[in-house]
Design a protein around this nucleic acid. Structure first.
Ligand SMILES: [Mn+2]
Ligand SMILES: [Mn+2]
Ligand SMILES: [Mn+2]
Ligand SMILES: [Mn+2]
Lengths: 220, 220
DNA sequence: ATAAAAATTTAGACAAATCTAAAAAAATAT
DNA sequence: ATATTTTTTTAGATTTGTCTAAATTTTTAT
């Protein structure tokens, strides 16, 4: 009564991510997330309901039960610990880790994942700045900082834009900065608090103090 | 044209192990190895033939093609590298590693396995003393030594018994030593070359020089 | 060489996860 | 309130890997 197929695990994870985003986990959104057809989702939701991982009301989507939520957190724990391992120990870069972790996350051994956690030094965030649940399923959403006043040479991931004005968004687009971009502060000018930053390890840009104050990041 | 299911991979590995043992990989032996029925094996052999991993003559078993053999060696490489990782980095003991490696061996990324190999320092043998194929599929069968004259406090795995006399086999049975037993030499007496050994990390035994000369081990 | 036994294959069915097409229900627009 | 559009479900088929039971082939024994 405690062993799920890859597919079931992937559905549970997808439902969790939809719920966390504030969406209702309905058939079409799941079909989209799982790259499958609505009819297939309906079949799977019936099955997940039978297994008591979700509550499901036909035509009105589903919700994770407590059991479903624990399972989701366990899979996310595995996924992010493996991403950390790949990045930190095997030297993968952060863009490459996800696809491999998608496979590793389904290896079931509890001892494996807890020993791995210990081996890695109980990391709190994965290479994308996302929090890693502990063995109980608890995780602390990492704090967000304004880029202004951020430490030199440490990486962060853009998670929020302060003011949503078209003018600001235009600048961001031009400098190729968006949600998810990885930013490292290379230099800060004492004079006007403007800074030189590296974006996604690829291109550099110069940004003003006001702009930096409107870019919020979480630490990796 | 280069992606196989868990089941296909497990069949290929089973066929490889039968061939290596000198057996003909026939339907019943495979059914036994795969914990399935003869009829299912027949179906799979047809499929593996279609995929050019084996040659298969109905009623006469199968043989790995060169492609099939490379695949087998790749899966064995993954399996044994993960076993080494679990044992060496995560502190699993050698009896526990196999089951977890059975799952990890199917994670496909080539970069993953080669980086893991590098991270582990290109180990030559797994925790059971079995050789690990390199990225080309080459492996060196580790040398076998007589237990007499073996280094103190190093582990080895029993791989062969010299003389097959009933008298000797009886002693081995009584001392619970068999093929696959892990032996560590704890003490050697200068006087008669007899030794105190630890068997499977559990019980100890005292064995004479003659006995030691008839126990062949490979190094872990 | 023939009969009996053992091994293997075929035939037909099943469960899981998927699909397409059609039907049904819910949401939205007029 | 009715009609239209969108979403979701049902019905029926497909693929993969499995099964049992029956048929066939090979091997062994007489
Ligand atoms: Mn990821
Ligand atoms: Mn991640
Ligand atoms: Mn093993
Ligand atoms: Mn091994």
């Amino acid at each position: 009564m405690d062993n799920y197929s890859f597919t079931e695990e992937n559905y549970i994870k997808a439902i969790y991510h939809l719920e966390t985003k504030g969406d209702v986990a309905n058939t079409n959104k799941l079909a989209d997330a799982m790259q499958t057809r609505a009819a297939s989702v309906t079949d799977m939701l019936k099955k997940l309901k039978r297994k008591k991982l979700v509550t499901y009301k036909p035509y009105y989507g589903c919700n994770l039960t407590p059991r479903g939520k624990s399972l989701a957190l366990l899979i996310i724990r595995r996924h992010r610990l493996w991403e950390f391992f790949l990045s930190e120990k095997l030297g993968f870069n952060w863009q490459e880790v996800h696809d491999v972790a998608e496979e590793l996350e389904h290896v079931g051994s509890e001892k494996l994942i807890n020993k791995l956690d210990e081996f890695l030094g109980y990391p709190k965030v994965d290479p994308h700045g996302d929090p890693i649940p502990d063995f109980k399923g608890n995780m602390v959403e990492p704090e967000q900082f304004s880029l202004a006043g951020y430490t030199l040479n440490k990486s962060g991931i853009v998670v929020k834009i302060g003011e949503q004005s078209p003018a600001l968004l235009e600048v961001l687009e031009q400098k190729k900065i968006g949600i998810g971009s990885r930013i490292k502060v290379l230099q800060k000018a004492d004079f006007d608090q403007s800074m030189e930053i590296k974006i996604n390890n690829k291109h550099t840009a110069h940004i003003s103090k006001v702009l930096a104050e409107n870019i919020f990041i979480k630490i990796v």
